[in-house]
Write a protein that binds this DNA or RNA. Structure first.
Length: 434
RNA sequence: GCAGGGGUUCCCGAGUGGCCAAAGGGAUCAGACUGUAAAUCUGACGCGCAAGCUUCGGUGGUUCGAAUCCACCCCCCUGCACCA
């Protein structure tokens, strides 16, 4: 077996990736040998979003350091719903739906770890496999007996649900912790898994598993939590005007994904480089120092966007994202050929075909229809401020009733395309109907 | 089941008969400034280009007029009781 990288924990620490760990520093010693660790991902949608990227990449870091990662997809826990730090009880998803999501998430998670590297090849498991056949009575006797309700009620993660006026917690969600604890114990028994990692909100669930494993199997296992990703301005990480940033290219195109990282605030970008890339910490420090030297636009955002887009969408996804970005933000769009425009559409630039009778509609209607703005008022506002550009030409409110002149064939790029820009960053490609 | 407290526009949260499409804050969008930043300032922010239309858990009612008052219903929370 390949040697184990003893500096792993130190590197994680330097990256700011360690929030809490069990075992009073004995974890370092434990990790001197190749170990098996796991992290769970619950299927709450058909794709993970970038909130799961930190644990996913951390699994990869452990694997790179010589440990064996298990990605657990919560086919069972996903049916229940984790109450940890959630303000409200969640509605249950249908079993068939969750089962479908499990398959999607399995595939997604698999991109990030190596399944063919000998001893420490990764595994993907589903916790439904050991809970499906479990009877309630067995569960209550073999698992429930080890948990103290007094103790559970005092967990910080459910406190607000128990104390807060106006919200409660069902027995179902309250039991979530037992299921997750069972996972750890089960993985310990089956595969000798001795470490669970997860977000900081998982601390209670993880220590539950550590305790259960000891009680059921007298096994010594560890837990490690990663920090919650926060932004300096206090707004929620991973959301933009257009919603959540997903890992699935069908939900968030590589272009949009790349743009998300490119728009990272200066105050966050170096931290994110440490969290989300494999660039050496010393090198990140150098980038930061260099950016400080130069006034003007920092390099960090570009590096971050490239690295993360490559990790998630591969070289091709990155190339597509950069191609579109270059064309829209620095190139002259009138230079684009029909082939280029076609490519931009394939690369994920939002696009649509103008309806046959588009002249009957107002410009406002057409842009709303295309999804460029949620309401006509916003388009109107933009038109009134000269914030709408069609093929580079500003279009004002006076042209609203005359889309025919705005989208006239003789002004089209390559005879049939229009690139409409609303505001600084929202682009849409329109194509004339044949 | 009983008692008490609640359900307001994306979120928080004011509003208890007209001055309410509904304070304030947050989030979001657009403009200026910039670096496709941040901070700041400005405008928008139920729907509609507009005239206008539809909202304050639901349904009826009182009233010239209701988010605000009344009745019934639904849902949530807290406590008590019942099941034990």
């Amino acid at each position: 077996m390949a040697g184990v990288d003893a500096t792993l924990l130190k590197d994680l620490d330097r990256r700011g990736l360690i929030n809490q760990a069990t075992g009073d520093g004995e974890l370092a010693q434990h990790l001197a040998e190749s170990r098996t660790l796991y992290c769970g991902f619950d299927p709450t949608a058909d794709s993970l979003h970038i909130g799961s990227l930190v644990p996913l990449l951390t699994l990869k870091r452990f694997q790179a350091a010589g440990h064996k990662p298990i990605a657990l997809v919560g086919g069972a826990t996903g049916l229940i719903g984790d109450p940890s730090f959630k303000a409200q009880e969640r509605s249950l998803n249908a079993p068939e739906v969750v089962a479908g999501w499990v398959e999607k998430i399995k595939a997604q998670v698999s991109q990030f770890v190596d399944f063919d590297c000998g001893e420490n090849s990764a595994m993907v498991v589903n916790n439904l496999d050991w809970t499906r056949e479990l009877s309630v009575l067995d569960f209550l006797r073999d698992v429930g007996k080890y948990f103290s309700v007094n103790n559970m009620v005092n967990k910080e993660s459910v406190k607000q649900r128990i104390q807060r006026e106006g919200e409660g917690i069902s027995f179902t969600e309250f039991s979530y912790m037992l299921l997750q604890s069972m996972d750890f114990s089960e993985l310990y028994k089956r595969y000798g898994c001795t470490l669970q990692i997860g977000g900081s909100d998982q601390w209670g669930n993880i220590t539950g598993g550590v305790d259960l494993t000891r009680r059921q199997h007298r096994g010594r296992v560890f837990g490690l939590t990663l920090p919650l990703v926060t932004k300096a301005d206090g707004t929620k990480f991973g959301k933009t005007e257009s919603g959540t940033i997903w890992l699935d290219a069908k939900r968030t195109s590589p272009y949009a994904f790349y743009q998300f990282w490119l728009n990272t605030a200066d105050a966050d970008v170096y931290k994110f480089l440490r969290y989300f890339t494999f660039i050496d910490v010393d090198e990140i420090d150098e980038i930061e120092a260099a950016d400080r030297e130069h006034s003007g636009k920092p390099e960090a955002q570009g590096i971050l966007a490239r690295e993360v887009t490559r990790l998630v969408h591969g070289e091709d996804g990155l190339a597509a994202a950069e191609r579109i970005s270059r064309a829209l933000f620095s190139g002259d769009i009138s230079e684009l050929s029909a082939g280029d425009l076609e490519q931009l559409r394939l690369d994920g630039l939002p696009s649509s075909r103008l309806p046959q009778q588009f002249a009957d509609n107002s410009l406002i209607h057409l842009l709303v229809e295309a999804g460029m703005a949620p309401s006509g008022k916003q388009v109107k506002d933009a038109l009134g401020r000269n914030a709408v550009l069609v093929n580079g030409e500003a279009v004002g409110m006076d042209r609203n009733g005359d889309p025919q002149s705005v989208f006239s064939a003789d002004k089209a790029l390559a005879g049939r395309f229009f690139i409409v820009r609303l505001g600084k960053k929202k682009y849409h490609l329109f194509e004339l109907a044949d």
